[in-house]
C-alpha cells in the first residue's frame, strides 16, 4: 500500500544522503521524494511517498527515527490530508493541434507555459488521478518529456505535524 510520510529533519549537511542511503541499503522503495525548508529555516521537511506493507512500513519509520537528524515522522495517509504534485509535460504539438490541447488544459485547470511551433510545455498540479488522466490524454499527441516534483502533502484542518504526535 502507498503511504505518504512527512519527515521533519534538521537542516544539516548530509541529511538527505542519510535518508536516501537508509532507504537504499535496507531495500525500501521510494516512490517520490520532495524536500524543502519549513518556516523554521533550521528544519527541512521531506515528503516521502513509499509503497510498503505494514511490516516494512513499521521498520522504515523505526529506522528513520534512529537517524539523529530526524526530528519527527508522520504518516499522513492515516489521517485526512491533501497531497499535490506538479508536473511539467512537453507535448509534440503542431499548430493544428493547439486548439484541442487548449481544451484539455482548461478542463484540467492546467497552464501552457511555453510555446514553440511544434511543441508546448504544460504545467499541471493535482493529485495522482488527475495527473494520470491528463498524461493519458496528452499521450495521444506524443509526450516528448515529462518531469515531476514529487508529492507534497499537508494534514487537513488546523492540525499540523509540528504540534501533532508522531515521533515514537
Amino acid at each position: 500500500m502507498k503511504h505518504i510520510l512527512a519527515v521533519l529533519v534538521e537542516n544539516k549537511p548530509g541529511v538527505l544522503v542519510r535518508v536516501a542511503g537508509l532507504f537504499a541499503r535496507r531495500g525500501f522503495n521510494i516512490e517520490s521524494l520532495a524536500v524543502g525548508k519549513t518556516k523554521d529555516p533550521g528544519i527541512s521537511r521531506m515528503t516521502i511517498e513509499v509503497d510498503a506493507d505494514e511490516k516494512t512500513l513499521e521498520q522504515m519509520i523505526k529506522q528513520l527515527n534512529k537517524l539523529i537528524n530526524v526530528l519527527k515522522i508522520s504518516n499522513l495517509t492515516l489521517e485526512p490530508s491533501v497531497d499535490r504534485e506538479l508536473v511539467l509535460i512537453k507535448v509534440k504539438a503542431p499548430t493544428s493541434s493547439w486548439a484541442e490541447i487548449q481544451q484539455i488544459v482548461e478542463t484540467f485547470r492546467a497552464k501552457i507555459i511555453d510555446v514553440s511551433l511544434d511543441s508546448l510545455i504544460i504545467e499541471v498540479t493535482g493529485n495522482e488521478e488527475k495527473l494520470q488522466a491528463i498524461e493519458l490524454l496528452l499521450s495521444h499527441y506524443g509526450i516528448l518529456e515529462l518531469v515531476r516534483t514529487g508529492k507534497v502533502a499537508l494534514l487537513r484542518g488546523s492540525k499540523t505535524i509540528q504540534n501533532g504526535e508522531v515521533k515514537k
Binding site: 549537511p13 548530509g14 544522503v17 542519510r18 542511503g21 537508509l22 541499503r25 539523529i68
Partner: peptide
C-alpha cells in the same frame, strides 16, 4: 570518510 562511514556509524560529523 564522512560519506564512507554513514551506514556504519551511529552518527558522524564533518
Amino acid at each position: 570518510i564522512f560519506g564512507i562511514t554513514l551506514p556504519i556509524t551511529k552518527h558522524n560529523y564533518l
